[in-house]
């Protein structure tokens, strides 16, 4: 292992800004994608349920 301390680890030999931006943005994108899919799934199911059970003019046609 090459890190003497936590601050050395976060400094990344002076490249901390570049390294951590890369990793954090990648992680955020992935988390965002998963959350967006959950919401999309919930919305699709809710709409589907409403369409099947609602008996509104959407299904009457």
């Amino acid at each position: 292992m090459q890190w003497g301390s936590a601050s050395e680890f976060f400094a990344m030999g002076g490249y901390g800004l570049y390294v951590w931006t890369s990793f954090v943005v990648t992680a955020l994108c992935m988390v965002w994608e998963v959350l967006a899919l959950w919401r999309r799934r919930a919305a699709a199911r809710a709409e589907h349920r409403a369409m099947l059970l609602g008996g509104t003019d959407e299904t009457a046609a």
Binding site: Q2, F9, M12, G13, G14, Y15, V19, S22, F23, T26
Partner: peptide, 21 residues
């Protein structure tokens, strides 16, 4: 990538971006 892989002799720690790039 962060604890086992050694520091690159040319690029220092910046090379670690390779693990996502």
């Amino acid at each position: 990538g962060f604890f086992v892989a050694p520091t690159d002799f040319q690029q220092g720690e910046a090379y670690r971006i390779i693990f996502v790039h």
